[in-house]
Nucleic acid binder design. Sequence first.
DNA 1: CGGTATCCTCGGAGATACTG
DNA 2: CAGTATCTCCGAGGATACCG
Lengths: 119, 119
Amino acid sequence: MKDLVSYCPIEEVMQVLSGRWPTLLVYYLKDGVKRFSDLKRDNPTVSHKMLTFELRKLENAGIVQRKVFEGYPLRVEYSLTAAGQGLVPLIDALGDWWNQLPAEASVPQTLQQPAFTGQ
Amino acid sequence: MKDLVSYCPIEEVMQVLSGRWPTLLVYYLKDGVKRFSDLKRDNPTVSHKMLTFELRKLENAGIVQRKVFEGYPLRVEYSLTAAGQGLVPLIDALGDWWNQLPAEASVPQTLQQPAFTGQ
DNA sequence: CGGTATCCTCGGAGATACTG
DNA sequence: CAGTATCTCCGAGGATACCG
């Protein structure tokens, strides 16, 4: 469905890579094959559901390969596809670029400070 | 600041570039100086508040420069900083990478996808 | 014109529990 | 162990209005 969006591919990539986890997962997977529980351990703060969803997203994008081993207990291995491996240097380049930024780039978060929904 | 789960710069960059607008704005600004209303016109679906916020975010990150002209009516011009211009080729590289993906690559829908009005 | 403040909604995402 | 389903809640972000 690369076609349902705009004509700018960047917009599409960002739909896949946006968020906290996608790039991190790619990063952890760059070391090699990982199981679901491995990734969970690598990212202690990601919820079970989120991890499943993000992995699915990366899989659908052709970045991550999912391999199921039937049996008990279940076992699933995740790894980067060839395309996914091509992503790694690009992400690295972004990281390098960030590190070379002149000053302290602050990245505050919330759109608005609550300012009291008092009572 | 949100707590980072890792110390890799990637997580930090993604806090700035994640979402629908940041990369798009960088892209529109790559053509040169733009006024607030220009960017609003370029992105018909972005809300006033969002645009302000995203621009602020990019400014704080050192990617975008903001220049105010006193007077009436108000006038503000936005442009890429040198660092911001360094970002452009990286974003382009991501776009190219995306275009070379096998065609089955699909964009997710479940998470925040306000349905692009493909301009 | 560009920015800020307020209100309000809706869906993102955590917690939990169940299945294969 | 991996994945799915439910419920719930909070806050991102749209709409609106006003100010410099």
